[in-house]
């Protein structure tokens, strides 16, 4: 179906992962629509900020 595969950059892969997991956490963890949207956005933001933050912290060790 996907032929040779889906080509995502590392950042795009991280965003996709964070989005899917945030949506699942929000719909399982909150009851109301407003609560779910708020939770999903907060979770997504934390995934991205912590992911990019850890990447920068590890950057000096990559050389």
């Amino acid at each position: 179906m996907f032929g040779t595969g889906v080509h995502l950059s590392h950042f795009a892969a991280m965003v996709t992962f964070a989005l899917c997991v945030s949506v699942a956490f929000a719909c399982l963890g909150r009851q109301t629509l407003a609560g779910r949207i708020k939770y999903a956005l907060l979770s997504l933001a934390l995934f991205l900020v912590i992911g990019v933050g850890l990447a920068w912290l590890m950057y000096p060790f990559s050389k």
Binding site: M1, F2, G5, V6, L8, A13, T16, F17, L19, C20, V21, V23, A24, A26, C27, L28, L33
Partner: peptide, 22 residues
Amino acid sequence: WGRAAFLFLAVGGLALVGYGMR
């Protein structure tokens, strides 16, 4: 209904992208 749809999309999205990335 909502929980079912979003759960399917989230799990399906992760699995399909995972297969797409080989």
